[in-house]
Write a protein that binds this DNA or RNA. Structure first.
Lengths: 159, 159
DNA sequence: TTGCTAGTTAGCAATACTTGCAAACTAGAG
DNA sequence: CTCTAGTTTGCAAGTATTGCTAACTAGCAA
């Protein structure tokens, strides 16, 4: 994502207005590596600007995504995550704490399905699931049942 | 996924009952490559067993997933997709028609993030986005804006 | 075959996430 | 300073999924 200042210019040049709400969201997103959900961003934003609406957060997030300044990640856990990092990268998701980490993968962009030569690839995404360093160190272990349940669709793990 | 007959045995051996509803769902899932949503399966199931409940479809699907007989795929488009193919494989998703295709990728399992050596990988997933042969042939082109919108979170594209 | 009971189903309420809508508001051009 | 197109809010509505529970039934045992 571009810097708040650059985004400001960009917004104006598109006939969009630079409102305090948008400025706040830009700044909260800048250098944000936490892959926040709309809701979590709203939480932080509310602290600094009481009264800001969740609707506005969603709206601005969607606008940024449309402009290609944000990526949307959907890991099937609660809501959509927003990623201000738009360089080519991939994700490592901890199945225990749910944290998502940006990672780089050598050779990822040259991957090809070996049984779908007729598919015109425009984008390749790699997702690693496993344990992050902290959870591994903590010796975190869950019952296979719970683990399975989590891998499927836990709606509340990391909130 | 195992055959309906094998699943029947498996269910019973776990103290679960083999109901007509479950049998129907097993058979609808067997050799199903369409990556259905719960809703779409419900549609087909209803045709053959009027009165079956969507709740039951969800329930059975979740049970199968817990047993490891199904994989859940979440592509951030409408609902969760269920994949009876549980062998190692990956997915190619057409950004135009939304279809998901199972593909195999040589070397995928040996991919590693090159900047997260402390992450303990348990699973690697590769997703290709692009155009399937049909959509490509049809010369399908969408406006960049719409395209962006679709990539984000279209809730109604392929239903 | 019958009866019993643990496991299931159906249906609706409830929840979580996200968007649609309309009225009130405001950034920024002139 | 004015005006207006673009914004923000708050709430209703929509979609996807699960919780709850009364009625039902598969499958065991007699």
């Amino acid at each position: 994502m571009h810097s708040p200042a650059e985004l400001a210019t960009q917004f104006r040049s598109m006939g969009r207005k630079l409102t305090p709400q948008r400025q706040l969201i830009f700044s909260l997103l800048h250098n944000n590596q936490s892959h926040p959900t709309a809701e979590s961003l709203y939480g932080v934003a509310s602290a600094q600007m009481p009264g800001i609406s969740l609707r506005t957060v969603y709206q601005t997030l969607n606008e940024l995504a449309e402009m290609g300044e944000l990526l949307l990640i959907d890991i099937g856990e609660g809501g959509t995550r927003f990623d201000p990092n738009i360089d080519e990268h991939h994700h490592a998701i901890c199945s225990d704490c749910g944290k998502i980490r940006d990672v780089h993968v050598k050779g990822a962009s040259s991957l090809k399905p070996n049984d779908a030569s007729d598919f015109l690839i425009s984008e390749v995404g790699v997702v690693f699931k496993g344990l992050c360093a902290e959870c591994e160190a903590r010796g975190s272990k869950r019952s296979p049942a719970l683990q399975a349940k989590m891998n499927q669709k836990s709606k509340s793990s990391s909130k």
